[in-house]
Amino acid sequence: MDLDTVRTFVAAADAGQFQEAAAELAVTQQAVSKRIAALERDLGVRLFTRTPRGAELTIDGQAFLPHARDLLRSAERAVASVRTGRRPLRVDVIASRVATTGLMRGFHHAHPEIDLDVVMLFDIETAVAALRSGAIDASFRAVAAPGRPLPEDIESVRVLDEPHQLLTGPGHALARARSVPLAQLVGHRIWMPGIVPGTEWAAYYDALVAEFGLTIEATGPNFGSDALLDTVADTPTLATFTTEQTRLVWPTGHGLRRIPVTDPTPVYPHSLLWHRDNPHPALPTLRAHLATTATAATGHDAPGTWRPDWVLPY
């Protein structure tokens, strides 16, 4: 398939007008029309419908668009595989408000000369596949889950042990506590709808439940952090876990409490993963930065903390 026609199709779909797509691609509008027509002949379907407002995707066009984007991303990765030093350093951080995003902000402030792309992949299998293909250069994950060791070509180092906190509404029985011993949480309902079976974070919380007899519920759809905070604020029998450096913002009226968990303190073990043959020139700089900032600041398997047995020691 001619990538120029695919690129033209995506540009036209995004712009909604052939004329704007032509300006973006630095070609004539006639060239855009010819490329789209050629692609439609190859596929045997109509991709656009002309309207007074411009060009709208047909149902077939809507179906083809995500695959067209994938084709262009694959081509980009193919080029990047032999021009690694010319593209930004790509790092996977799981989510935007977690501690590892803060680590990458610190790295960017310390090394503004390094171009950086931050991406968010779903689970460790996806991240490892992206590391092995060269789509990303590094990933922050908890490793290694039981029975799922990392491939031999993937290296890792623990960079941050992040303490847990209990998040409650103002009416919860523990809301006024300055800290909560882990054993005191037995019998309390801890709601975490973001836990997905088979993921590395599910393995972590499964181990926590098994060792301390906690009740962690992952029932119901995950509508995101705002809905979770609303429910915890309004339900005195529910609490949830968060981690110390996770950034949360809620309305003043919620009155939520973040309470340290102690005796022991569960810590979430963030590790940096990379492919041992990754040639990106900025990757050693990232590793050195984390070695002198994140790890030094958090300690190594500190007394009074807990992690699953399957997490490798420092």
Rank of each mutant, 00 (worst) to 15 (best):
I114C: 06
P269L: 07
W250T: 11
R87N: 03
F241K: 09
P149I: 02
V209S: 05
D14G: 04
A12Y: 03
A21W: 07
P193I: 08
A129Y: 05
H188A: 13
L229H: 10
P170R: 15
Q62C: 12
E162V: 10
M104I: 04
A207Y: 07
R77K: 14
L272P: 03
T265P: 08
R276G: 09
H111R: 12
A210M: 02
H164K: 06
F9Y: 05
A38R: 11
W250P: 04
R50N: 01
R7H: 11
F48K: 10
V196N: 03
W201E: 15
P221F: 08
P88V: 00
R189S: 14
A144T: 14
V128W: 08
D2K: 01
I114Q: 02
S179Y: 07
V10P: 06
G147M: 04
P221Y: 06
V196Y: 10
I114W: 04
G61R: 00
V119T: 06
A144F: 06
T252D: 15
G198T: 08
G85C: 04
A144M: 05
W310L: 00
R53A: 14
R158L: 03
A130T: 00
H67I: 06
A302N: 11
L39N: 01
A21H: 05
E24F: 11
L121R: 11
V45N: 01
V143M: 00
A13I: 07
T305G: 13
T231K: 12
Q19E: 14
H67P: 00
N278W: 05
R83I: 06
V232S: 07
I259A: 13
S179L: 09
P52I: 02
Q165G: 00
L43P: 01
G253R: 14
T58W: 05
I36G: 05
V82Y: 05
I114A: 10
G106R: 03
H172D: 13
T240K: 11
P279F: 08
